[in-house]
Structures are given as structure tokens and as C-alpha cells.
Design a protein around this nucleic acid. Structure first.
Lengths: 224, 224, 224, 224
DNA sequence: TATGAATGAGTATTCATTCAT
DNA sequence: GATGAATGAATACTCATTCAT
């Protein structure tokens, strides 16, 4: 009703906000940003738990107490960093789907572009996404929003593909869903989302994406 | 086949041996087995580092000192357990390929069976494989043998598929390799071999395998 | 009796006032009351130090700074609450002695009534009295007024008993003083005023009071 | 049956032993003694929790880890010290009762001696007994053995008095029990067992004991 | 060989108090 | 007067590794 609800974009489509309150005022905000950034940097350098609050305090130039003023625990600080990354991914995907909707006129155009663009979204966010997935394995406060992100992703991809259902032979919904899973699994693996053994991939990234798209297209178009 | 296989049983096709010496004699061997088994059990219960050498000592009924006599460090003990699991996987895969060679007469028979059987091999070994992949992300002494296992796996799959290269349209080698990667990625993801966020998968396992096989077949058979 | 009692209501017969200034005006006073009440409640719930000024600030709806404006420290806030309780005890005892003076006509009437009524006064104030005694063990700012309360108590009891000195055999003053000490010690113990090990007393309260009175009477009346 | 059960005095009549294992061998034992003594000293200097494990480690010349080898936690270390004190009190009381049994021929001899001797037992052990009683207020692992000690004490005193029941007028058992409670309460209070406000007692100790004994005797002998 | 007691560095968290606004 | 965000010192506990016996 008020101006509030009309102007603002709905912050966080994820149920993620509860972890750490963002202060709104100037100095406060700045100190919040510093500790958040310090934590983020350290997490990227070392892994999601391999850092000390003392380090955050020193790098971020904030007192230990300040950290506890915003985040109830080290865990919550870690979660906040991860959740922010999840939100960024959601935004990036949304932008990607909008772009694809304009550009792709048929399945043959859509699939390769989707594979490429989605790969790019994941690649850009891979470092924190890796931490997110690792942590989701044991932390429900990460697996829940993580699941949301994954579901959105799947839903977006399915919706996009089903715009071309006329081109799809057989059970279009089933095929689209399978395609999404296989694409995500392949890209995730290539980006070592899930910390794989062969992290230093020597298999070529570009050919894989191309063949992956071909495979999906062949499958989608195939009549039963 | 090689001279290697005639003289002694081919212990560890992997370059893994440096990690912990297996004593050949009775009492020593028994105590080695006990500490190894205790560590393996604890790793499966809690994760690859979430146990204490004291716990190994108690459960395995061996002294702390004994453990250090066989394994230079806790890390090496963990590595030994993981490497043994990798070897088991290699064996299981070899058995699988032999079986498939007898049973599958054409690509249409081979691909679905391979997907199924490989899925089973991975599923059975998933718990330790998960630990292996997690650890490989930061421990070169695991990522190296892990890479070997992966390469063997890929090579085996490629070789098997190329027996039917006549049925494959276009660049058979490229396609086979792509297929292998995509199958592995999809199965690995489904088994959470990389600790994914959506660990409690609600997507159906059986349909995915079926569609995965269809996709691969459609792709392989497709003429350029 | 004295000039003191005519001009103003005898606020605090104890040398306790230094601890926290009570503001006289409306809003200020109200906020003082709220923080005081919040502290008192928390102390009764958790013990005299087991609460946080942040909790006082939240429950009492006052800012941390306000608390420091009235009380120089957390310790002083605690002291203020305890001292108020001591004053209440003094009032209750004075009322009790006035009542007893009217009702008790001889030693045989006085002693049992005194034991009963004093027990009641202590019982009602036991929760904060317990905190007072605990703290007096190490805080001179509590032990001093605590001593005053105890001395008043002893003096009142002695004075009352000595009204019946004709009935007392031998050194009436010594006997009265001894009786007071023994009565207080026994009641205090029974009320766990001093945090005793056997806090859940199973010994019966009523018989003890009766026998305690008998013991005191037998002693007081006994000729040397 | 074995020599074990005949030679050894039954260690710890209290169910207290579970808190911290006493090592039996030389060097181990010595280090145990050092950390125990250091903790005891610190507790007497500062109170039962007002010390740091680092201090124990330094004063006792043992590593922090060693402390945790014997005591699972700081709390358990504190408990062990307190429990040992409780056991000493039990021994001292037993010795006292044996002595009194030989010396006291009638109630008139027994009561004053008992008051004196019991006062001495409590006085000697007062410092740790104070800590014991304080802690018993919130720690069941102390209140339980504390209750045992108190019950033994009461039972011993009752038994001793009832040897002279012929001299006691009326309900001897009730009177004896009342006398015990009142004596203990009075002595405990005088020794500030329970951290009293007037810790620096100026009332005379000796007269109180004398009058306390008189009071009890007058009461016990009084015919109903 | 085998033992297992001893070591001690390393870290998340709390909360009374201050002081810029 | 009033506020409440910021401070930072202080402390129990873990566990891989060593080495005297």
C-alpha cells in the first residue's frame, strides 16, 4: 500500500535473511561490510571454516565483539556469506533467462546458448558455490536455501525449454527435466562443484559444452 | 596380462602404496587390520577427519604408538582407507566391463546396461567415494590416485563403446568420451558424490537412468 | 522516637544510600523503577550475578546508558537491589516486635511466637536474603549493612526477651543473646540461607520450630 | 575373598570416586598430586571457580592436557577437591565419635564435649566445607555426597546421644534429632559455613559453645 | 617392537563498560 | 540527559604427535 511496497524490489527471494542483520546506517553499515568482506575473502582463500574470527577482526578492522553484534556465531557469519552468494546466483540466472527468452527462437538456438550461459553463471560463482554445496551436506540452514535455488533453477530451465515443446518428441516435460539434471550435473562436475578428485581437469571445457548441447538436442528432438 | 600379473597378485594398480606398510606376519598383520578397520568404520560413521586416534586405538584395541608404527600420521591412515576403497572400485569396474563384454551385443544393449551397472558400482562404493572426492580437493596424495581411477574408468568406457563404433555417427572417439563424462557426472551427482545441497533427492533415480541412456544413445547414433 | 522519625519518613536506616541515586522526578523515576525491577526479577530468577545488563536493558525497557547514569556499575545495581531487601526485612522485624510486645505477656508466650514470626519474616525474604548473605561473604558494601541488620535484629530480640528477665535464671543478658544466635542460626539453616548442601530438607519444619522454642525456654528458665 | 578385600580399608565411604581417576603409578601419581594440590590451593585462595586451568597448569607444573587426562573438565577437578574434603570430614567425625564414646560417661559430659569437638572438626575443615556447601546449592554431584555426609553426621550424633536416653525426658529420639540440628546450625553459622553477612564475627565463640551446650542439656533433661 | 602418558598451541565466545552522537 | 554500538580481554577445551620406558 505505502510507497514502500511499490518502489522496492523484493529483497531476497530466498528465506535466507534471518542469518545476521544488516544495519542500515552509515558507520554501522561500513563496519558490517568490512567484516563481511573480510570473512568472504578468507573463506575464498582457505575454505569455509578454515579461518579465525581474530583474522576477520584484523583484516576487517572491526572488534571481535562487533562481529557477534551482527552474527550470533561464526557459523552464522559463514552462512551469511554463502547465502549472499546464493542470491547472486539467483539474480544472474534470472538475467540469463530473460536474455535467452529474447535471443533464442527455437530449440536449436536455445540449448547451446543455455548450456553456455548457464556454465558461465556457475563458473563465475563457482568458488562460493563450492563452499555452499559442501556445507549444505551437513548444515540445514544452507541446504534449505540451497534447495530453493536449485529448484528455481530447474523450474526456469524447464519453463524455457517447454516453450519449444512442439519441437520435442514424446513426453516433453520428462525430457526437459532430464535434460536440466544432466546439464547441471555435467557443468557442476566440470567446475568441481562438489570438490572432485580430478579437480585439475584436462578434458576440454569447450568441446564438452558443445557435445553436451548436441546430446540434449538429439534427445529432445527424437521421436519416441 | 603383463609380466606384472604373473609373479604376484597385482596389489594396487594405483600408485598408492607409499601410504602405510602392510605387515606380512600374523600378529602384526592382525593388529594392522584392526586399526585399519576401526578407522574405516569411524570414517564412515563421521566423515574422513571427524574421528580421533584415541578412538581408533580403543575400537581397534591397538595402542596409539602402534598406529604411528604403521602409518606415519593420521592423514596417512585416512589416505590408506581411501586408497583401499579406490582399489575396490577399480576391481568392481573391471568385473563390470568383463560382464558387459559378454552380454551386450550392440550399442542399444550396451548403453543402458552400462548406465545401470556403473550406477550400481558407484552406489555401492558411494560412502567412501564421497570421502575420497572431498579429500582429493585438497590432498594431492588422494587426487593423484583418484585421477588414475577416473582415467581408467574413462578408458574402459571408451574402449567398450568403441567396439560399436560402426553404430556411432560422426567422431566416435569424441562422442564416446563425451558420453562417459556426462554419464559419470550425472550418476555422481545423483549419488551426491560431491556433497550437494539437495542431498535428499526427490527426483526419481530409475527414470533418470533410463532417460540418461536414451539421451546417450540418441546422441551416439545421430549422424552428423 | 528520635527526631529522625518526625521530619521525614525514615528512608533507609541503613548506611546504604551511596549505592545508586533515586531520582525524584516522574519520567526519570519511572525508568529507575523499571531497571530496578528488571534487575530484581532477574536476580531472583538466576542468582545475583547471573544476568546481563543487556537483559536488564531489554526487560526494563531502558538503555544501557541509563543504567550507568543511575548506578555506576553492575555491582552497584546488584547492591541496590540487595539493600532494598535488607530494608524491607528491617521494617518487617520492627512490625513483628511491635505486635509481639502487645501479644506476649510472659516468656512462655513470647518465645514460641517469636520463633514462629521471625521464621516467617525470614521465609518471606529468603530469596533475596540468600543472595545478600552470599554476596556479603566477599563484598564489604553488602556485609556492612548486612551486619547492621543483624545487629538490629539481635538488639530487638534481646530487648524483647529482657522484658521478661525476672523469669530468666542466671545471667539474663548472656542467655538472651545466646538464644537469639541459636534461633537465628537454626532458622537460617532451615531456610538454606547460606546455600546448604541438603537444600531439600526433609526434616520437618514445624516440629523443629516447636522444639527450638522449648529448648530456648528450658534454657532461659533454668536456674544456674 | 582375595587378599584385596581383607587388607584394604574401604576407600571412600562416599559415592564420590567417579570424579577423576587417581593413577596408581609413581610419576603419574606425582603429577596427579601436583595438579590436585595446585587446584586445592587456588580454590582456597580465591573460591571454588575463581581460578584458571592455566594457573593450575603453571603452579602444579603439569600441562593442560594432563589435567584433562585425569579430570574430564574443570568442574570435575573442583568436585574432586571438594569430595576429598568431604571424606576427610567423615574420617574426622568417626574418630571424634570413637573418642567421645570412651570419654563421656553421662549426658552432662557428652554434650559439652560433643559441641566442642564437633566445632573443632568443622573449624578445621571450614574453608573447603564452605566451598562444598556453596557448590552443593547448584551442583547435584556435590549435593548428593554432601547429603550423605550430613546424614552420617546426624546419625552418629543421634546414636551417641541415645546411649544416654535414660537421662532424656520425653521423646528422646525427637529431642536428640532436634539437638543435632540446632547444634550444627549454630556451629555452621558461627563458622560462616554458608557465607554469612557478618563473617567477621565479634560475638565470642567460646561462650556461645558453652551456652549452646547448656541449652541442649537443659532441654534434653527436662521432663515433659 | 610396543605402549600410552604427557604435551601445549590454538580459538570461539561473553559481557561490563565507554563515549560519540 | 539519553542512547546503544563498539570494544577486547580473558578462558576452557581438543587432539595429533612424541618419547621414555
Amino acid at each position: 500500500m505505502s510507497s514502500q511496497s511499490t518502489k522496492r524490489k523484493p529483497r531476497s527471494p530466498l528465506a535466507v535473511e534471518q542469518v545476521g542483520r544488516v544495519p542500515q546506517q552509515g558507520r554501522s553499515k561500513a563496519s558490517y561490510e568490512r567484516m563481511f568482506a573480510a570473512a568472504r575473502t578468507l573463506m575464498l582463500e582457505r575454505g569455509d571454516e578454515e579461518f579465525t574470527l581474530i583474522e576477520v577482526s584484523q583484516r576487517g578492522n572491526v572488534s571481535i565483539g562487533s562481529i557477534y553484534l551482527r552474527f550470533e556465531s561464526k557459523d552464522n557469519l559463514v552462512r551469511a556469506v554463502i547465502c549472499e552468494a546464493l542470491e547472486e546466483i539467483v539474480s544472474a540466472e534470472e538475467a540469463m533467462f530473460e536474455r535467452l527468452a529474447d535471443e533464442a527462437r527455437d530449440l536449436g538456438e536455445f540449448v547451446p546458448r543455455y548450456v553456455n550461459d548457464y556454465a558461465e553463471v556457475l563458473r563465475v560463482n563457482a568458488p562460493l558455490l563450492r563452499l555452499a554445496m559442501r556445507r549444505a551436506a551437513f548444515d540445514p540452514l544452507i541446504s534449505a536455501p540451497g534447495k530453493q535455488v536449485a529448484d528455481r533453477s530447474a523450474a526456469g530451465a524447464n519453463r524455457a525449454m517447454l516453450r519449444f515443446s512442439a519441437e520435442i518428441g514424446g513426453d516433453a516435460a520428462l525430457k526437459a527435466d532430464s535434460v536440466y539434471h544432466i546439464i547441471f550435473a555435467t557443468l557442476a562436475r566440470e567446475l568441481s562443484l562438489g570438490s572432485t578428485a580430478e579437480s585439475a581437469r584436462n578434458y576440454d571445457w569447450e568441446p564438452l559444452k558443445r557435445e553436451l548441447a548436441r546430446m540434449c538436442l538429439a534427445y529432445l528432438r527424437q521421436q519416441p
